[in-house]
Design a protein around this nucleic acid. Sequence first.
DNA 1: AAAGGTATTAAACAGTTGTTTAAAAATTCA
DNA 2: TGAATTTTTAAACAACTGTTTAATACCTTT
Lengths: 219, 219
Amino acid sequence: MWWKFLKVTATFTQKQLEIMESAVKLFAGKGFDNTSVRDIAKAADVNVAMISYYFGSKEKLLEAIFIKYVTTMRGKLEEIVFAHDVTPAEKIDRIIETYIDTIAANRHFHLLMVREQGVMKNKVMYDGVKSLKLKNTSLIKSAIKAGAKAGIFKKNVDITILALTVFGTINQAFNTQRFLCEQYRIDPDNEAEFLKVIIPRLKVHLKAVVRSYLLVADK
Amino acid sequence: MWWKFLKVTATFTQKQLEIMESAVKLFAGKGFDNTSVRDIAKAADVNVAMISYYFGSKEKLLEAIFIKYVTTMRGKLEEIVFAHDVTPAEKIDRIIETYIDTIAANRHFHLLMVREQGVMKNKVMYDGVKSLKLKNTSLIKSAIKAGAKAGIFKKNVDITILALTVFGTINQAFNTQRFLCEQYRIDPDNEAEFLKVIIPRLKVHLKAVVRSYLLVADK
DNA sequence: AAAGGTATTAAACAGTTGTTTAAAAATTCA
DNA sequence: TGAATTTTTAAACAACTGTTTAATACCTTT
């Protein structure tokens, strides 16, 4: 009976994945600390002991979740291809759209990550989140450089701060879901409707904001 | 021995304020659920029983904190005077600067609020946060309307979404403090230095973003 | 100084937490 | 089939949670 959670390379069994999926929803919904292992066990329809058995501890389960999703999202970001026949402005648009779609598709984890990142002491998780952020920043950076070289984007843009706006806006949207549902008169339990309303608006808005910020005023 | 926390009009004794101040820092630092009443008691240098004695419960202590800070921040926002001798663009600038300064001054609470708002079930707190958001939105809205009337701002701007960007960016900045410290090579424990670096950058950036987004392209 | 209310304390309370145990069931493999 | 391994279970564990208790100390006010 050797433990699979000792592996670093993170390949999970079906049972582990089921537990992780139940856990991530609960963590996102009521927070890590406010979710008990018994809650998770009940939601995943397994015995409480299975969490320790499969992951070692509740904390390690969270680690496993981070490893899984960070890997997934990194992969999605790397899929962004820089085609040569699109303008720099279109490249930026595509990056923003991919961001929003990817985050929306993994919004339960993303909410958890955003909420927990300020409190995080665990090095594995902190480094995972950091690597995601660096990836994001470098993606935006290279797209902006191309536009700057073409003379249509400003030079010397503080990309760290620009990334704050892009991700801050997206995070804020998903983090204030209930409030936004009130604003747009959407049933707060109708998540599909929320996504249908907010995603296009986010895309249009962020693309406009970033483009109007990057484009040089005259010429 | 009747309890002061039964009052709704929220006037707090010195001892209560001390407990609240210790609590808000701990809550912001490690989360509400992960902070025990014994932690708070130790930090405030009082007996554990004093928290129940003064506030009724840990949850009510959080409520008291929300009431206090929401009131404070509402007050600050209401101080924004719409002088008649400044341009609409300058008005927007002033609003953004006041936002950033107010949030920075109350950043411990603000972090707590942002982190807890997605999980909040308590009506008192949810309504408090909502009223703040509505206040914010209405402030921005009236400033934008003035500019639109003057013909220098776009019309039909989705202010709810624009507010997402303004507050999302600010929240993201304070929520990723550690990461930003790494980016700007600041000692993560040197909070004063962090504020000195991030606040001006945030102001310059957000003002530029919002203005370039609101200003009509030609003319 | 005495009385009466308030503030503070250490201890106890009952409930929940994450984790472990040791036995039982299920599965694998020869 | 039968032995060996892995998975699942209910129960027990100790540690910690927020809250209450009952006694004591501290202040006022008379």
